[in-house]
Design a protein around this nucleic acid. Structure first.
Length: 217
DNA sequence: TGCCAGGCCGGGT
DNA sequence: ACCCGGCATGGC
């Protein structure tokens, strides 16, 4: 929580990803898997131009056409199938209505998302938090890297353990989870990229263990 | 120019 | 159970 405060003071509110619509957020959550958000924006813009930013319209679209539209997001063939799998759930189980979908108990919806091929824990939690406003903390590579390098979690910790770490320590607040995750991404991009920790000017430098960041990354 | 990006899956030990 | 490559485009 002190870490959160420090980041908020350094970077301010990120007002991240409450994107145009919940559906757009869902599509973005799949397309951004291991991919720069800028590329995702191009893909979403293509979908908008094609007037296909609704579950039914997108689910109806032939796979090759979908692949072409989302091409800028990379991994376009896998992602087209993953999107399709998710759309199938939304259309067939919830009649294409996100309101209906998010009315189902969050724990059970999470299970359903995870059963969908191509939807892993981070994508599922991103959908639940950012589109559905359900209190699931989103753990991404930056979360892992930042907290492991500071010695706050183990480098061996899996997704669920890391999520538990946050759920145990933070008030259950959608707004807070939302902002915290966004701030960690911001921090990660600027100071905690893969090869190069730049701890000198990092807002969290005071919290580093003696001898600098831990490294098994 | 090479490396990285807001993961996830499947196949090989 | 673990480890590792494949998937692909665009930006710095």
């Amino acid at each position: 929580m002190e870490v959160y405060r420090r980041l908020y003071e350094a970077f301010g509110p990120q007002h991240w990803w409450p994107g145009e619509s919940p559906f757009e957020v869902i599509v973005g959550a799949v397309l951004t898997q291991n991919t720069n958000w800028r590329n995702v924006e191009k893909a979403i813009e293509n979908l908008r131009q094609a007037d296909c930013l609704t579950p039914d319209a997108l689910y109806r679209m032939p796979l090759p056409e979908l692949e072409e539209l989302i091409r800028p997001a990379g991994y376009y063939k896998v992602k087209a199938r993953r999107l399709r799998n998710l759309l199938k759930l939304i259309v067939q189980q919830y009649d294409g209505s996100l309101e209906t979908m998010f009315r189902t108990p969050a724990e059970r919806l999470r299970e359903q998302l995870l059963e969908t091929p191509g939807i892993g824990p981070e994508t599922a939690d991103s959908i639940l938090l950012y589109a559905g406003e359900k209190p699931f903390f989103v753990v991404d590579t930056y979360t892992y890297r930042v907290f492991a390098r500071h010695g706050w979690i183990s480098f061996e910790a899996d997704y669920h353990q890391i999520q538990e770490y946050f759920h145990d320590r933070l008030p259950q607040d959608v707004r807070l989870y939302n902002e915290y995750h966004a701030l960690l991404v911001k921090l990660g991009k600027e100071y905690c990229r893969k090869g190069e920790p730049r701890c000198e000017d990092c807002p969290l430098k005071d919290f580093l263990p003696a001898g600098g960041p831990l490294q098994p990354d």
